[in-house]
């Protein structure tokens, strides 16, 4: 199986870190992963985007052909990618920053990542909440490997980040 995920956000939201952690987690699970990144030339306030392909097979071609999941933390990310969204694609958005048009409501997971991260006393942990949601929705990596990747990256802050990750995971997987 191959899963194609595009993650879009503004500089400073931790998009690239989030994508790398997902890749690390998937590799830990024994899968192949490839990630290309693009960013505007501005250090702060610009956009950045990461394309992730996670597969059971070796990956040669790094470009996404069929977008399975669009994750966006900015309205711009949705608008820029409208053409790539198909009926079968799923959206994962930051609720407070992205207004999802009615047409896409049914295929969208609107995650209040900022709010949840704040409630867990980790206002910088929004990307960790989103990572949890991506894990829960795409099932492209296991919860255990996601946690392991986070504690490896943030050895001194692993607990508060894992809390955010778990909360995001729960947000999309709880029954009902």
């Amino acid at each position: 199986m191959t899963v194609n995920i595009r993650i879009y956000g503004m500089g400073g939201q931790g998009i690239i870190t989030l994508a790398k952690l997902i890749g690390e987690a998937a590799v830990e699970d024994g899968k192949s992963a490839i990630m290309t990144e693009e960013y505007s030339p501005y250090v702060t306030g610009g956009w950045s985007t990461a394309d992730l392909i996670i597969s059971d097979h070796e990956i040669d071609y790094p470009l996404i052909e069929n977008l399975d999941y669009l994750v966006t933390l900015s309205q711009e990310g949705l608008e820029k990618n409208l053409e790539s969204i198909k009926m079968s694609s799923k959206l994962i958005t930051e609720k407070s920053l992205v207004k999802v048009p009615d047409l896409y409501k049914k295929q969208a997971f609107e995650i209040p990542g900022i709010e949840l991260a704040k409630s867990l006393n980790n206002p910088k942990g929004t990307n960790m909440v989103i990572m949890g949601a991506i894990g829960g929705v795409t099932k492209s990596f296991s919860k255990e490997s996601g946690r392991a990747a986070i504690s490896k990256r943030f050895p001194s802050f692993s607990e508060i980040n894992i809390n955010c990750f778990d909360r995001g995971f729960e947000e999309v997987t709880r029954p009902g």
Binding site: A33, M35, E37
Partner: peptide, 9 residues
């Protein structure tokens, strides 16, 4: 540039 910034195994 792509190879420099591309992440994979």
């Amino acid at each position: 540039q792509v190879i420099g910034h591309l992440s994979e195994i």
